[in-house]
């Protein structure tokens, strides 16, 4: 929750708490599937697949995987250095979720609550597979965004904060 609702500024102090995300999974479930901390995994849905890194935990329902929203960023955005861990290791689950349900006859309905239109983010079923040894790094990736003309490009490693400055 440290970045939740505070993503926009890529806040230097909050980034020190968390600057990349993992896919989190119940430890016993992971063990039974031959998965362990820091493994690279493919996460596959009806809509697509992503590659990311795994962490296990005990406080997770055995059939559930989850991650933090919006920690991963496109390289070159949000005032971050191009090698920022948000861009090199952080990832989105959004690629796995379709805004449309699979076709039903000629129509595709919204992936939402049929009464209220609420986006059904949390209804996704996924398969988690261990990657081959040579498969590392997040997928998908996007090319680095171009720097804006009003951006001086300064990406300080240390952001000093002293009074009156």
């Amino acid at each position: 929750m440290m970045m939740y609702h505070s993503w926009d500024s890529q806040n230097a102090w909050l980034r020190q708490i968390l600057s990349r995300n993992f896919l989190y999974m119940n430890r016993a479930t992971a063990g039974a599937s031959g998965l362990a901390d820091d493994d690279w995994v493919w996460v596959e849905s009806h809509h697509g697949r992503i590659r990311c890194q795994l962490k296990t935990m005990e406080g997770c329902e055995p059939h559930t995987v989850w991650t933090w929203n919006a920690v991963g960023r496109q390289r070159g955005t949000s005032g971050l250095a191009e090698d920022a861990s948000e861009a090199t290791a952080g990832f989105l689950l959004n690629h796995l979720i379709s805004e449309l349900l699979p076709a039903s006859g000629a129509r595709r309905f919204t992936n939402s609550d049929p009464v209220t239109g609420q986006a059904a983010w949390f209804d996704l079923r996924v398969r988690v597979r261990k990657c081959a040894p040579d498969e590392t790094g997040i997928q998908p990736t996007f090319s680095a965004a171009k720097r804006r003309p009003d951006d001086d490009g300064s990406r300080p490693d240390v952001l000093h904060w002293t009074r009156g400055e």
Binding site: S6, S9, Q10, W13, S78, L80, P149, D151, P156
Partner: peptide, 21 residues
């Protein structure tokens, strides 16, 4: 909370836009 007091670093974020584009 941690976020509220970190508002300072929102103000001094390198991600701030500064001109209409």
């Amino acid at each position: 909370c941690a976020k509220g007091s970190a508002g300072i670093m929102k103000q001094y974020s390198p991600a701030k836009l500064s001109k209409p584009l």
